[in-house]
Design a protein around this nucleic acid. Structure first.
Ligand SMILES: [Mn+2]
Ligand SMILES: [Mn+2]
Ligand SMILES: [Mn+2]
Ligand SMILES: [Mn+2]
Lengths: 225, 225
DNA sequence: ATCATATTTTAGGCATGACTAAAAATAGTG
DNA sequence: CACTATTTTTAGTCATGCCTAAAATATGAT
């Protein structure tokens, strides 16, 4: 077993790797809230353990074993998030912080028990895919809601779980995964958009709409002509 | 919040305090599996934080605040044990080790949710009382099963959870809390005893019978004459 | 290509919580 | 009461994981 610190570093590197091509010392430093110098010294340790490769001044990359561990931590995290939401009714804006601690103390036995109790789920409460036991992660293709044209609709695939306030905000309009949402209008100059969710309409800031991802996009009536 | 290490020390001191009068450096060292010197330096730190009082060479005692924290950790531990057993079907010989880790990462909110989900229980799977939120612990009076005379019966109050093997062993004969058990015979010289549990009889070593505690003791037929 | 700026690494430190070995205090025995 | 054995404390060390300040390297604009 690795330390909580190492698990957090590997998970963070994996998450940055998913978004940007190069994983820099600075990006890890920011995401993890530690000083850049601390990251460098941890990178040295992870290199020695063959969990990452690190070329001085050139960024890092997970090795096979490193990625395996990262995916296991993420699996724990997302399973716990879903379990807390489903079994204990924890609101979806609170599950992330709890899971951040639990992911490191979840035994394989309990992982399996939760998995079973939840019916072998594939998505966490925010729509993110849960890696399978053997470390396979199936990303769903989705685009930010803010990119939809007026008249278009899509099904919420995923909502970023990085900010509890955002989750509460979009949750109040019913913007949960699997829900269909239609864009009624889009204000220019990155203005707010008007959306329809379950027969009621709301105004959504473009910032927030950056963090809501949809799939299954269908053209609206206007485009059908 | 205190560190996991501090929480474990306080819990350990509380548990030793319950059994023996004086809490010595050595007893803490043994129960916690750390060197005596390490205990001394931690006692210094706990004294400074006013969580214990410590007279050099004379043992330690929890202060009010120290005991409060100890009871909170124990509450977490026992609630988690019960939750794992009830909600996830974890066998009673495994819940202790899991709870040992979880007790330190359980938020007050989740504590309350588990408490509610379990119907505000008062006993953990081994029969130990669960301290209330405000830090009240009601010990049930009980005696070791090994002290019962032939013909006497009692209701299992508590089984020591320190050894998983013991729990599996006595679990196989149905010796769970709330179960009535009758002592049929007692072999001399600390020999095994014969017991009847739910209409089937078993032989139980006296060592094991030391760790099973009964209450509600009733005299057998022979004594009624 | 040079120079200023940003990024990354090195160097040196600190807190936590362990350890071993040695010294000090206590307790038990004749 | 003295002496030995046990317990406890002190002293010194170490690993982990963080920090700041300074040096090294890379990047990007002129
Ligand atoms: Mn974490
Ligand atoms: Mn999530
Ligand atoms: Mn513990
Ligand atoms: Mn227990």
């Amino acid at each position: 077993m690795y330390t909580e610190s190492i698990e957090n570093y590997l998970k963070t590197i994996f998450e940055i790797q998913k978004e940007t091509e190069k994983v820099t010392t600075n990006s890890i430093s920011e995401k993890l809230g530690v000083a850049p110098a601390s990251v460098t010294s941890m990178m040295k340790k992870l290199s020695e353990k063959k969990l990452i490769t690190h070329k001085r001044y050139q960024g890092v990359k997970l090795t096979g074993p490193g990625q395996k561990i990262a995916l296991e931590v993420i699996r724990h995290h997302r399973l716990v998030e879903l379990y807390l939401a489903e079994a204990l009714g924890v609101p979806w804006d609170q599950v992330h912080d709890e899971a951040e601690k639990w992911e490191h103390v979840l035994s394989e036995d309990l992982e399996d028990r939760m998995d079973k109790a939840l019916g072998y789920p594939t998505r966490d409460p925010h729509g993110s895919p849960i890696p399978s036991r053997d470390g396979t992660l199936i990303e769903l293709e989705s685009i930010p809601l803010v990119e939809l044209q007026p008249g278009q609709s899509g099904v919420i695939a995923e909502v970023s779980d990085h900010d509890p306030d955002l989750l509460r905000y979009v949750g109040k309009m019913g913007l949960y995964p699997m829900t269909r949402v239609e864009v009624l209008s889009v204000e220019p100059f990155s203005g707010p958009i008007t959306i329809k969710v379950e027969d009621s309409s709301h105004i959504l800031g473009s910032q927030a709409a950056q963090y809501v991802f949809v799939t299954d996009v269908e053209p609206g009536r206007s485009e059908l002509t």
